[in-house]
């Protein structure tokens, strides 16, 4: 059996089968929700923003030209909707200072993270991510989790290809420093308990 592509579902919706939209919502709800959550920082608000995103996408489906992937187009909508939400709430994120990193630092951090329980590790990373500016959280998520090419990411966040590269490099370093500050005390605490 051949698998339906996003375009197949879009064609079905356009020919009047509204239920086909549920396939797209089911496919992308987690990614959309995660992106929203990493910007608005609150589950209830992220749920509202995600819902708005899917409704907006449905309304705008007639203007979806298919020149980019449906996912790229959808992520751009959730990104803009989330930023609008943040703007309304006027939250300011303080920037993290960046120091140089050496190889042994990275090695010891990898080691420290393995000592933390799965659930706690996930929470720690999530908290560290929230200390980055919104744009950088999204860049990291799209590049490292969704593994999108830089060109598609630049279309979503509306910054140049080179700028995405520079910002990704900067955000990698920032995330490392934040994690180092958060993980080291936990690691030391775990070590002293053993």
């Amino acid at each position: 059996m051949t698998q339906n592509t996003d375009q197949d579902y879009i064609d079905q919706i356009r020919s009047g089968n509204v239920n086909a939209y549920s396939m797209l919502v089911a496919k992308y709800k987690n990614m959309v929700f995660t992106l929203a959550l990493r910007i608005v920082e609150n589950r209830e608000d992220a749920e509202e923003v995600s819902q708005d995103t899917f409704i907006k996408a449905y309304r705008k489906l007639d203007s979806f030209k298919g020149t980019s992937k449906f996912s790229t187009w959808l992520y751009r909508i959730v990104y803009n909707t989330s930023l609008d939400y943040v703007k309304k709430n006027k939250r300011v994120v303080l920037s993290e200072h960046i120091d140089e990193i050496n190889e042994s630092d990275i090695g010891s951090m990898q080691n420290a993270l393995t000592y933390i329980e799965d659930k706690e590790r996930k929470e720690t990373i999530e908290k560290a991510l929230l200390k980055l500016p919104e744009e950088e959280r999204i860049l990291l998520t799209l590049f490292y989790f969704e593994e999108l090419p830089l060109k598609e990411i630049s279309e979503i966040v509306k910054i140049s290809y080179d700028n995405v590269k520079i910002k990704l490099h900067r955000s990698r370093k920032k995330l490392f420093h934040i994690l180092k500050n958060v993980v080291e005390p936990i690691y030391l605490n775990h070590g002293s308990r053993k």
Partner: peptide, 28 residues
């Protein structure tokens, strides 16, 4: 390269968050 690999592992570890169970029904 090492930092790139480290960030990839960290982001994969963070994973995705799921909305509430009635999310799909609400959107539809």
């Amino acid at each position: 390269k090492k930092l790139d690999q480290f960030t990839k592992e960290v982001m994969q570890d963070a994973g995705l968050q799921a909305p509430s169970t009635d999310f799909l029904a609400n959107v539809m």
